[in-house]
């Protein structure tokens, strides 16, 4: 029996929360930990990753009937590497200080499992409409994850958000939060919170059924 592939709208919605790349699948953790000390680099990373993901998903979907199973990973990598290079050069040309700040993390998008997994799971099996919806949904999910981690770290560690000072500079800040250990603490806490909320929602959903039974 053929497996039913999700419709484009379902793909889009799944990518945001139910299959959130960071909080549900634990993919793309390297940029989530490395560039979330502040909102600006985190959002630049999201924009670069979204560009690569959307382009790679579309190209893979368009050529899906020509893919040979044993060579498909090579095709995915070639496609992803091309768009990562374009994103890297574009940042260096139009946002040079940010390109310097992100350093090797932009080229490292090539090995972000989140992108290759979307090519494998969705784009190599479904049409461009579903592939585009999937890429946009997953990008929004990635945005949600990086924005939440960066918000916690920048506010606690620097007292600011997007560079705008929120608390008086005399107010004590937790410098640890903008250092590497702060990334693990913020991600771990938020991961725990999201898992707890997910379980509670499931429990609430199953309660009426138990009561009616």
């Amino acid at each position: 029996m053929p497996v039913r592939e999700p419709a484009p709208l379902e793909r889009f919605l799944n990518g945001i929360l139910p299959e959130n790349p960071v909080y549900r699948q634990l993919l793309g953790l390297c940029p989530t930990l490395a560039v979330t000390a502040a909102m600006k680099p985190a959002m630049t990373m999201v924009a670069a990753t979204a560009f690569v993901l959307i382009c790679s998903n579309l190209i893979t979907s368009l050529i899906r009937h020509l893919l040979k199973p044993h060579l498909r990973i090579l095709v995915f990598t070639l496609t992803i590497a091309t768009f990562v290079t374009i994103a890297d050069r574009t940042l260096a040309a139009f946002a040079y200080p940010m390109s310097k700040l992100l350093g090797p993390y932009v080229p490292l998008i090539i090995v972000n499992c989140m992108i290759i997994s979307r090519c494998e799971v969705c784009a190599s099996k479904q049409g461009p409409k579903a592939a585009l919806a999937d890429a946009v949904g997953v990008s929004l999910g990635f945005l949600l994850a990086l924005a939440s981690v960066a918000t916690v770290r920048e506010i606690l560690g620097n007292g600011s958000w997007f560079g705008i000072q929120l608390v008086p500079e005399s107010f004590p800040t937790l410098i640890l939060m903008i250092l590497p250990p702060g990334a693990f603490l913020a991600l771990g806490s938020l991961l725990g919170l999201f898992t707890w909320l997910g379980r509670r929602r499931k429990q609430r959903a199953s309660e009426p059924e138990t009561e009616s039974a």
Binding site: I63, L71, L74, L78, T79
Partner: peptide, 11 residues
């Protein structure tokens, strides 16, 4: 490998 060769040329 024709597809990979073609993609490598285009990219």
């Amino acid at each position: 490998a024709w597809l990979i060769l073609l993609m490598a040329g285009v990219f």
